[in-house]
Computed example of a mutant assay.
Amino acid sequence: MMKIWNSAVGLLIVTGTLLGLTLPFGKVAGEAGVPPVIWAMLISVGAGTVLYLAMLARKERLGLNAGHLRYYAISAAISYAIPNMITLSAMPHLGAGYMGIMYTLSPMFTLILSVIFGVRKPNALGMAGIVVGFLGALLVATTRGEAGFPASLTWVGIGILLPIFLAAGNIYRSWDWPKGAGTTELAVGSHLAAGIMLLVVAVMTGNLPALAMLAEVPALSIAQILSSAGMFVFFFRLQVVGGPVYLSQISYVAAAIAIISGTLLLGESYVFLTWFGAVIILAGVVLTTKAQTS
């Protein structure tokens, strides 16, 4: 366990796998009638509560100064509340595998934002990767989701917002990491803040009574809470060990889990151009990843 805790590769595999489970879990929950805002709230409140209990058992405290509160609020919005709402809302229209492909775009957008905000200087390899990745993304976008069930361009556009928010979260969390803060502490604060945000959305949209529907999928709900809680412990540790760009590569593992589960377990299918576009995106991501070390 200690080897994984200090290994960027090990953390990447564990975090990406647990993240990838959110997609098939979310699709099954949606098919059972659970609204996206309720499932997203379950993810954040469930994970935040489990991790907070772990903190209490270790007699750790949650930082509540201005820097911590700012971090919790901003990280909650751009890293969890909004991305989870996008994923769970778009997935019924685009498919779990398709949304998994959207995850793979986050390293490319992370590099773009790194360049824009001066975290990194642009180089030829990185720019080539961005161009190739965008070409692949455009190709995937034209297929508009599962074969035989084309989604509207509006849903495709919403799906593409996912990697943009994930990339923004990757950059922000490293840039504004509170001094001396621990990984579990930040996971707890961010997720409880996201849970509060989603609770407000549920009340405003009239979806709060649908909380009762979680009782109809108890095993799935528990599995989601446990996988989310575990994922975010490793997620914040990977942020420390690997940095924002390396962290963004959890999207590869998550996409693989989503595509495999979507096609083999959920009966999804995609046309050749979707797969071809995914390969082109992967090539672009390989270039942008190499650019980080050149």
Rank of each mutant, 00 (worst) to 15 (best):
M2C: 01
N6E: 08
A8V: 11
A8H: 04
L12H: 03
I13V: 14
I13K: 00
I13D: 04
T15K: 04
G16N: 02
G16E: 03
G16M: 06
L21I: 05
P24M: 02
G26F: 01
A29P: 05
E31R: 11
G33T: 05
P36T: 07
I38D: 09
W39P: 05
M41K: 01
M41L: 14
V45Y: 01
V45C: 04
G48T: 05
G48Q: 00
V50D: 00
A57V: 12
R58I: 04
R58A: 13
E60N: 08
E60A: 10
L62F: 08
Y72W: 11
A73P: 01
A73F: 14
S75W: 05
Y80N: 15
Y80K: 12
A81W: 02
M85W: 07
P92S: 06
L94N: 07
G95C: 03
G100W: 02
Y103E: 11
L105P: 02
I112G: 06
V115W: 14
V115F: 08
I116S: 12
F117V: 11
V119C: 12
G126N: 10
M127D: 04
G129R: 11
I130H: 03
V131G: 00
G133L: 02
G136Q: 07
A137H: 00
L139K: 01
V140G: 05
V140K: 03
V140E: 07
V140R: 03
A141Y: 03
A141S: 14
T142C: 02
E146R: 13
E146Y: 00
G148P: 08
G148L: 11
P150E: 12
S152T: 13
S152G: 14
T154A: 15
W155V: 09
W155H: 11
G157K: 07
P163C: 06
F165Q: 10
F165C: 13
L166I: 12
L166V: 13
D176G: 01
W177E: 12
G182F: 09
L186Y: 11
A187F: 02
A187M: 05
S190Q: 15
S190M: 14
A193L: 03
A194M: 01
I196P: 01
L198E: 09
V201D: 00
A202I: 09
T205Q: 03
G206E: 02
G206K: 03
L208H: 00
A212L: 07
A215Y: 08
I222D: 05
A223L: 13
Q224P: 01
L226D: 07
S227N: 10
A229L: 09
G230L: 06
V233Q: 14
V233D: 10
R237V: 12
R237P: 06
L238S: 08
G242S: 10
G243D: 10
V245S: 15
S248P: 05
Y252G: 08
Y252L: 13
V253T: 12
A254W: 09
A254C: 07
A256F: 13
I259L: 15
I259P: 03
I260K: 07
S261D: 05
T263F: 06
L264R: 10
L264Y: 12
E268L: 09
V271W: 00
F272Y: 12
T274Y: 08
W275R: 05
W275E: 06
F276C: 06
A278W: 01
I281C: 05
V286L: 15
T289R: 11
K290W: 12
K290N: 05
A291Q: 02
Q292D: 13
